[in-house]
Design a protein around this nucleic acid. Structure first.
Lengths: 217, 217
DNA sequence: ATTCTTTTGCAACACTAGTTACATATTAAT
DNA sequence: ATTAATATGTAACTAGTGTTGCAAAAGAAT
């Protein structure tokens, strides 16, 4: 149990120590709970109310949108050190989540009680900068997503999707079925299979069961 | 000249008086410059560096994105009392604008020196809430834009575009050519003409030169 | 009044993406 | 080993959107 606490302190310092004030880091250590979450777990769903600000320390999270008919679309990813801007407002205003957050691998997430948000915004310049930076980064990423949907063809988006995943998870192997890829891109399985086949013919990937392997990034 | 100053105070109090602390409103009055801007003027362009935080007091602004090839896409609108979240970060970090802001009608815009941003974030709770709320509203709107592009067909998006414009400008007459509409929706003139014709046949609109008239909202 | 410019209409065609239906291959379960 | 479940391959067809090229209409400029 003591080891867990030491590991937590180590992790927080590594992830946030360089961007947040020392005093704030100490407060975070005392006011947070570290959670380890398995791969492919939905940690926030559309409509959920949040009691904690989540900060990803290790691993990666994908943020997606879902409409009434259950159609999905991948919006962006969150990596180590980042928080989810969309959930921040849920904390401040007690509104419901408009997005879904799913772990892409086993991840370590820091949970901070929502009342600290306003206190720290007043007290720490680095926290203000962190929160504002976070919002801005997510907005920029949302706009990149819009760019992709608007200006790119599906085959280009597919290749971007594969390389993004590879970079994020640090592996040229993407362990998804065609169906899962189709859901993230809001397309259909047959279309994705067809386009993957084209990428294979162009020698950009090789197709395996439950797995796509990129030749390079 | 005195009258201009009185009008400015009146405007600021009307637009911001109910959401911001009295003391902050006074600071805004003393630290801002009111600008009147004509219709269809580009007030911020992609790549611009900002020296002021703009707050729209009267009128309306459209925010759009442009890719390398010059293709456009309308992202969202800004109305009275709102600020542009995307330009906020330009202020804090001195980065370049990633969006274009264009007036949709004659508008009154308050310009606040960027250094006030950090000072007020520390000093005023209402300013923190205003800025965070602003970010969140824009993110929500970006996601609605994503929803529209991803889940709606072009004819639905076109009708939404027309009713959004009508609501925003408070008139059933939309003074745009088919070409202009096509640019906002990132489509082509011929396609928009075709879809407008369908809406006219369905008795939802009437088509005129340089003008579409909605039968109702 | 005539010419020029802008805007809109229209038809034919092309392309991308989505759908349906079925076959085949691979793995898991019994 | 046999069966069941899951994943992928393929073909034919459809729908939606974009492109090209030209004509007609409306308005502005001379």
């Amino acid at each position: 149990m003591m080891k867990m606490q030491e590991q937590k302190i180590e992790l927080i310092k590594n992830s946030l120590g360089y961007i947040l004030e020392e005093e704030l880091v100490a407060e975070i250590i005392n006011n947070s709970q570290l959670k380890e979450i398995e791969q492919d777990k939905v940690i926030v769903n559309v409509g959920d109310e949040l009691n904690n600000i989540p900060i990803v320390l290790e691993g990666s999270i994908k943020i997606s949108r879902e409409n009434e008919e259950g159609d999905e679309l991948l919006l962006y990813y969150i990596e180590g050190g980042d928080t989810c801007a969309m959930t921040l407002q849920c904390c401040v205003r007690h509104t419901k989540s408009e997005i879904r957050a799913t772990t892409m691998e086993k991840s370590l997430i820091l949970m901070i009680p929502i009342n600290m948000m306003e206190v720290w915004l007043h007290k720490y310049k680095s926290w203000r900068e962190y929160i504002l930076q976070s919002y801005h980064t997510r907005m920029t990423e949302l706009m990149e997503t819009i760019d992709a949907i608007t200006f790119m063809r599906l085959d280009e988006r597919l290749l971007k999707y594969l390389t993004d995943q590879a970079k994020l998870l640090g592996s040229l192997e993407i362990n998804h079925t065609h169906q899962q890829i189709a859901e993230d891109l809001h397309s259909s399985r047959v279309v994705i299979s067809r386009l993957l086949k084209q990428l294979e013919i162009k020698k950009i990937i090789t197709i395996h069961r439950n797995k796509i392997i990129l030749k390079s990034i």
